[in-house]
Design a protein around this nucleic acid. Structure first.
Lengths: 233, 233
DNA sequence: AAGTGGTCTAGACCACGGG
DNA sequence: CCGTGGTCTAGACCACTTT
């Protein structure tokens, strides 16, 4: 345990001070907050220092700033939760022994659903993978993945037997846009069989990745029933 | 539509330039990146300007920086998805007419589950609410909420008939910590009845809110079957 | 027109951490 | 030790927005 008893110094001191006044209700939602110049004088620092403090509070969703009209406490705090999206491997290894199995590897032509989701032309070839992630030898999540071979031809030469597609992609392939969706589903039979689960709702995470307007990959990650995705902020 | 054709100026130019070099693979994961001084000279700007550009890239998860050893491209980009968590009302009003109904309002004693989750003493009184959020008169989500009256006695005097607890709380009550969890559940009967749904998996969002170590409220939000929580980054 | 935040500069000192 | 990033300063000009 680090002793963090000492009060923050510099711009952090200002940031925490202002935050304290917001949390305590001293500065209420919608209320105006002193400007940078005034704050800088109050704390005896340069304007740039006060600026940095206020900018961080804007970024954290506590303040709104507009030129000329000044700074205000956000009326309904735009709380943005930041989910860390670790490699599944890392998530499992935090508490258990990680295992990985490749179940299916095949080249396929895109069907209508995939063509739509990945914005593909008619005959585009995809690499389809079905993988199982295990924690202490028990099924943890099933990964269904399609990789666009038009964008990523080099994927055709990888066997994915020992390294999962997630890890392979993240290390080698840059991307510019990601769409992430969560929903609750009853897994289809070919997934629930692999999860060794009876009929029970599963959390489904879907991720579609793009590179400069070209689709790279689409992934469906079905977690075992009872899985909880948690964050704290 | 704004025409954003013009290339970014100042520190943004540096940020986008460096990002481009990462995304194009010119600078690979794990590789060292020029230091601030070098970058500043390259672009003919002050060191502080280069610093600002690099800091933003760290924050976005693209770079790692350490004193003395310098700046590197993150080997596996720490992709953090930022979920905006709007008031349900705003989420619905983006596409439909919002409706709200209070179904249950009662003071209760905390049971074991709630005592554990909210870290309560034995006899703490809670305000229990059951609410329905509607989109164009169709059930959209069911909100079950418990408010800690020890922390928030003033909530006992609010009827919550026209203003939902979510909106009331967010406007008036500051908080310091939030725990947010997502899972897939088969809703219990008293929830599925209200959702007018047959037996189908629902996405469940649970949020526990704290103020300086004291629990404020616990909420279970059950979305209608088929709901998708989406984010883009 | 004028006020407020956004950005930049040139220079400085400090803190961390690898050698 | 000493190089690199972290922070700060005092001053400046600019951009946006309201008056």
């Amino acid at each position: 345990m680090k002793a963090k008893g000492g009060k923050p110094q510099g711009y952090r001191a200002i940031r925490e001070d202002v935050l304290q006044r917001i949390r305590s209700g001293k500065w209420k939602p919608g209320a105006a907050v002193p400007g940078e110049i005034e704050l800088a004088e109050e704390y005896g620092v340069a304007r740039g220092t006060a600026n940095k403090a206020m900018r961080e509070l804007v970024e954290q969703g506590y303040l709104e700033r507009k030129r000329k009209s000044g700074t205000r406490v956000r009326s309904s705090p735009l709380r943005a939760a930041r989910f860390a999206i670790p490699l599944i491997r890392d998530e499992i290894e935090a508490n258990a022994r990680y295992g990985y199995k490749l179940l299916v590897r095949e080249e396929v032509a895109a069907d209508d659903v995939l063509r739509d989701r990945l914005a593909l032309k008619a005959k585009t070839r995809l690499l389809h993978l079905l993988c199982l992630h295990l924690a202490d030898d028990a099924p943890y999540a099933v990964e269904e993945r399609w990789i666009n071979l038009a964008t990523l031809p080099e994927a055709a030469g990888v066997d994915f037997l020992s390294v999962g597609p997630n890890e392979w992609l993240v290390q080698r392939v840059p991307f510019t846009d990601v769409k992430l969706e969560f929903s609750a589903e009853l897994p289809p039979p070919h997934v629930s069989v692999v999860l060794q689960s009876t009929v029970a709702p599963s959390l489904l995470a879907e991720r579609t990745t793009w590179l400069n307007g070209n689709s790279v990959t689409y992934m469906r990650l079905t977690f075992k029933p009872g899985y909880r995705l948690a964050t704290q902020y």
